[in-house]
Design a protein around this nucleic acid. Structure first.
Lengths: 228, 228
DNA sequence: CCTCAGACTACACGCTCGTGTAGCAAACTA
DNA sequence: TAGTTTGCTACACGAGCGTGTAGTCTGAGG
């Protein structure tokens, strides 16, 4: 029962089939756009059975939330055992793969409680990572730190949310396990390249035109660039 | 008459009021989740008027597409006149601000033709930027170049798509003109910091664990790290 | 054999929402 | 003044969809 993820029906209880189908349909059409009849059809059951197991469409959505988050945490825990996990939060989601991740990516945009918690958890992790590694540039709790963590989380999760577009451009589904490493490789290249760019002439001008980090938690009193 | 964007009603024709309301409601609830009656209420008109001007809900959506894309291109053109525009594509969207951008961000996830075109245009720009600046690491047309451009576009646009979450974490709407620079500052910090991280011990291990760039268009023959 | 529970289906109700129709009022034209 | 266009509303129809109800089938327990 644990080793046959790709078969849509086979061997699964009705409840599980419904959940899997719902994850997929919710991810593709959004919660509002998905109909219980479409989910029922995808699962090969009647709409009544959905009601029987989950009570209502909203109940089904909550079950999907719980299941997807659970699957993600499971993967994250497994990922923590290897050390590498840098801000490896989004990385965990890539490793988890499958319908759960597509569902969560959509939920991040449509806004569910769980999705907000998920983003916050990722941002908290990132904040700790930044503060531990560069305590002077990113003091714990400073606005610059919170900003950077929020933006970085959005950037990394953005690759998940926009995976259909990346898929189209890359000619392969970036969520398929065999292609996940391409994302990592690309990101490493981007980070090193952009840092290089920002130390150059054109990029330097751009960087200087921006306000300083403003580690002070107040709206920036016009101060000169302070970092580095 | 031309300089009062924040007032919801006042001075605007019914058609324009409907369009503005639709951009907002579509952005918040998604196309499927938005009802024409909600849009009509927000615009202070009847549902019949929407039909009168736009024919159908789908017609209204297309009008929103066209308007938002137009507003964006306008801003991009203006942005091109200053040079800085690095991969400053997403930057243009930030500068354009307002309901159009929130609408497009949502459209990127819900999938409209225009949104796909928008992503592709951004990715193309990014691809050119990479290929011009680092012709050996990012040869024009190579898979590594396409991958990097796709991922980078997704990362930058991801900050737009997930702006509600960033807003919550930052305590201020990142799309408000006075806060836009904080995003830029954060991104500059992230790029330089992460590049620093990737040259360190832990990050270096992580980078080495990934497949090489694979400028060859075939699935990567296990080769050692080649970049740098 | 009876029964009781759980998985599951068929079917109908009622609401929401997009769309269609008819018509009013003001502005412009002649 | 009459005619026409344009901006706009009120109201009703019909489809889609979530939900509610009743009932069937299977299997386990006594």
């Amino acid at each position: 029962m644990s080793s046959t993820p790709p078969n849509p029906h086979e061997d699964l209880t009705g409840r599980a089939r419904i959940r899997d189908a719902a994850l997929e349909v919710f991810a593709q059409r959004g919660v509002r756009g998905a109909t219980v009849q479409a989910i029922a059809a995808a699962a090969g059951v009647s709409t009544g059975l959905i009601r029987h197991h989950f009570g209502s469409k909203e109940g089904l959505r909550e079950a999907c939330d719980a299941y997807a988050i659970g699957a993600l945490l499971e993967q994250a825990r497994r990922g923590m055992e290897e050390d590498a996990a840098a801000p490896g939060f989004a990385a965990s989601m890539y490793q988890a793969g499958g319908a759960s991740v597509r569902y969560l990516a959509r939920a991040l945009v449509e806004g569910s409680r769980s999705a907000s918690d998920l983003f916050d958890a990722g941002a908290d992790l990132t904040e700790r990572f930044l503060a531990e590694r560069w305590p002077d540039r990113y003091p714990a709790g400073a606005r610059s730190t919170r900003d950077a963590a929020a933006v970085m989380s959005a950037m990394h999760l953005g690759t998940l949310v926009l995976h259909t577009h990346m898929s189209r451009r890359m000619g392969a589904d970036p969520l398929a396990p065999e292609h996940v490493p391409r994302i990592g490789t690309a990101m490493v290249g981007i980070y090193t390249s952009m840092a290089d760019f920002l130390t150059g002439e054109q990029g330097g001008r751009l960087a200087e035109s921006l306000p300083a980090d403003g580690t002070a938690p107040t709206p920036p009193p016009p101060r000169e660039n302070s970092d580095e």
